[in-house]
Simulated assay, not measured.
Amino acid sequence: MYFGAHLSISKGFTSATKEAISIGAKTFQFFTRNPRGGAAKALDPHDIAKSVELRKEHGFGPLVAHAPYTINLSAPKEDTWSFAKTTLAADIERMTEAQVPYIVVHPGSHVGQGIDQGIEKITQALNEILKPDQAVMVLLEGMAGAGTEVGGRFEELAAIIGGLVFPDKVGVCLDSCHLLGAGYNVKEDFAGVLAEFDRIVGVSRLKAMHLNDSQQPLGSHKDRHALLGQGLIGIDGLSAILKHPVLAEIPINLETPGEIEDYRREIAWMNTVVSS
């Protein structure tokens, strides 16, 4: 299985790959640029090539990029919506160069337009961005459903994908903490949750997972990550998630609120769970 964590690429892909190897990871996630916005750092082809070589040597699975939080594909304001489209399109091109197959994006917030209009805006934006020959797949992240967030229900993700001209260029990234917040009982029945996802969206679209415990209870609509085993999903619930066969071949990254040593300990625990 491909376990990893969210790491920084501020010193380059090779440095991040070495850090991932040092904590026992077989993948990692990173921000495409400053998560709060700003210009993207130029890519170094030599650094990319060295990182690819290291990852092959150590049996890595796919890496996962994460778009900045400033992207809102559902924004009612034209300038904000235009910025989101321009930024995501540029990052797809950059990740193609970096040989990273997935870029996770939060679907967006409708900011009072209503969920149907929000979904329509996201679908329209993606239809303007996606190209039939692109190598990078956009992964819509399932959200906790806070405020005016779009993507807190599987039906919303399915509606976005259903309106796409090139639906094969879009997948889904689920987050255990977000799922609990959105009202999906991953603590006691992850298999049932995934069966519901399969019925509504299609499990073949699940391309990545974020593994986090949750500080908030089922149906809270709050996104508050916790260290594994220190939240309300708990060790038993997280173990059941890890053991589900559907997750065996996809990258699973930690976004827990700890330091690098916490990631090392959590990845070791994850490996113990799946080998037991």
Rank of each mutant, 00 (worst) to 15 (best):
V203H: 13
S214Y: 01
A191Y: 10
A182D: 09
E196N: 15
D213P: 06
A208N: 07
G183M: 09
N212L: 03
K169G: 13
L232N: 05
H221I: 04
L174T: 05
K207E: 03
G171I: 12
L206F: 07
L179S: 08
I200G: 10
M209F: 15
A226E: 06
Y184F: 08
A240F: 06
L174A: 14
N212M: 05
A182K: 04
H178A: 14
I235W: 11
A195Y: 06
L238R: 01
A240Q: 04
D175N: 15
D236T: 11
L194I: 15
K169M: 07
L211C: 07
R205L: 10
G229R: 00
D198T: 10
L194R: 03
A240W: 08
H210S: 09
G234P: 06
R199G: 12
S214H: 06
F197I: 03
A208C: 05
K222S: 07
H178F: 14
V172G: 14
S239F: 02
L227P: 02
A191T: 06
Y184I: 01
H225N: 02
Q215K: 14
F197G: 12
D198K: 15
A208R: 03
F197Y: 14
G229E: 05
V203Y: 12
I200H: 07
L218Q: 02
L238A: 08
L238K: 02
L211G: 08
V193S: 07
Q230N: 12
P217K: 04
H221N: 13
S214G: 09
L227H: 06
R199N: 12
K169L: 11
F197S: 12
H210P: 13
H210E: 03
S176F: 08
L238T: 00
D213A: 03
V172C: 12
G171C: 13
L206A: 10
N185I: 00
L211Y: 07
V186Y: 04
H210L: 03
G183E: 06
L227G: 08
V203I: 15
C173A: 10
A240V: 11
V193F: 07
G181Q: 04
D223T: 04
V170R: 15
L238M: 10
A226R: 10
K187L: 00
H178V: 13
L211V: 11
D236C: 08
A226H: 10
D223L: 14
G237E: 04
G219E: 03
S204H: 08
D198L: 14
G231K: 00
I233N: 03
Q230L: 03
K187F: 00
R224V: 10
E196Y: 15
H225L: 09
G183S: 04
A195K: 13
K207P: 08
G237H: 05
Q216E: 14
D168T: 11
G181V: 08
C177A: 14
L206E: 03
A195V: 15
G181T: 00
Q216D: 09
D168V: 07
A240H: 07
S220M: 12
H178L: 11
R205Y: 07
C177V: 07
G183T: 01
E196T: 14
H178C: 14
L218I: 01
